[in-house]
Amino acid sequence: MSARYYWGLHLGLIALLFAGHFVLPAYQHGNVARIMVLAVYAMGYNIAFGYTGLLSLGHAMFFGAGMYGMGLLSYHFDAGALPAMAAGIVAGAMLSLVVGLLALRTAGVSFMIVTLMFSQALAMTLVYFRDITRGDEGFVIPSATRRLWGMDLSDEAHRYLIAWGLFSIVLIFTLWLVRHRWGRVFVALRENEERASLLGYDAFRTKLGALVISGTISALSGAAYALLFGYAGATFAGVQYSIFPLLWVLLGGAGTVLGPFVGALFMFYLIDLSSGVTDAYMLIAGVALVLLTLFLPQGLVGEVKRRLWRDLP
């Protein structure tokens, strides 16, 4: 199927979510705003894991770098929304560059553990310097920061639109990236690194590029989360927030542009529904991880791609 169809599909989703702003009831409206921000995180993760085959267990450090880079500038220096966001994004980009330079010397299982360890070190560091970060409690983003172009971001409607804007930009960027030759080299590295090297592609530099793009988008999501929902806390840099994007991407379909959103949407509602019933809502996440690896390794969109629409990006 030609490019026209999948551009139609992806732009259609963006239009649908825009329409959602006007028709969704208040509670769902808030949920979808949150899901769109988290889907940005998942899309960032997917560039490393889904397209390049870099299975990181430590992406929460990038999400956390964005959140704290943004939050601390706002909390301690009363920065405006845009400089604070920029600080978060730059923090994530720098961190992913440094982590990439080190961690990408390893591969496979070692890479998973190294990223997990780096992420743990950051999470513990955030707790350790409690004078600056307020430790485990975290802190509320001052309302002075939460204004953008005259909009009050604690207002539900503004929040949804900003989330929608970010989501749309990242979705279109991903769609462009994976069809660009860089994205195609990412896939080549995922499929067969040695072959790609012998076609003249520098595996280390390409993977580093993928990880920095992935980390930067994750940081963007973390910064936006703090900005829109007004809180930064160490939990967001913990292991659980490294597992979540893996779960969303696996559920939706690794290496598909729509997969991260679909996965985040389903998992959010699954956990939302079950947390009404029990405190042990993470049980759902555990069961989902096991069932997905066993029975649906391609994920939902991946399955569509495999059966119906082979060249879906």
Partner: peptide, 14 residues
Amino acid sequence: IVATIGLLYILQQA
């Protein structure tokens, strides 16, 4: 590893 992460949550939450 992914599956044992799932198992981790199942055992812990159960």
